[in-house]
Amino acid sequence: MSRRYGGSPAGTIISIIADIAVLILILWIALYLFDANTANTTVSWVHDAANWLSGWSHNLFTIHSDNWRTAVNYGLPAVVYLLIGHAVAGRVNRT
Rank of each mutant, 00 (worst) to 15 (best):
W28Q: 09
V88T: 05
H58I: 13
Y32D: 09
I14F: 07
A10R: 04
N59L: 12
A87V: 11
L23C: 07
T12N: 12
W68E: 07
I26H: 00
N37V: 06
I17A: 14
G11S: 08
D35M: 00
S65H: 02
L31T: 02
G90C: 06
A78D: 07
S54Q: 08
A18D: 11
L31W: 00
L76W: 03
T12Q: 13
W45S: 08
N40A: 04
L27E: 04
R91V: 14
I24M: 10
L76Q: 05
T38M: 05
H58K: 14
G11N: 01
T12M: 11
A18W: 09
I24P: 05
G85C: 07
A49S: 04
L82D: 11
P9W: 04
D66E: 10
Y81N: 13
L23S: 10
V79T: 12
D19P: 03
P77T: 03
F61S: 08
D35A: 00
I84E: 11
I16A: 06
V92G: 06
R69Y: 09
I26G: 05
A89E: 07
V72E: 10
Y32R: 05
N59E: 14
V72P: 12
G11V: 01
V22W: 05
I16E: 07
L83P: 03
L33P: 00
W52Y: 13
A18L: 12
L76K: 05
T62L: 13
V22Y: 03
V43N: 10
T62R: 13
Y32Q: 08
F61E: 01
H86K: 10
A10E: 11
S15N: 15
G11F: 05
A21G: 15
V88M: 13
G75K: 02
T62G: 06
L60E: 09
A49L: 03
F61A: 14
S15I: 01
A87D: 14
L76M: 08
L33H: 01
D19M: 06
A49E: 02
A89V: 10
A87P: 09
T70M: 14
G75I: 05
P77H: 07
T41E: 12
N40P: 00
L27P: 04
S65C: 01
S44H: 01
G85I: 05
R91Y: 14
T12F: 02
L23R: 00
G90V: 02
A18G: 15
I13T: 14
V79F: 15
W68T: 14
D66I: 09
T38C: 00
N40S: 12
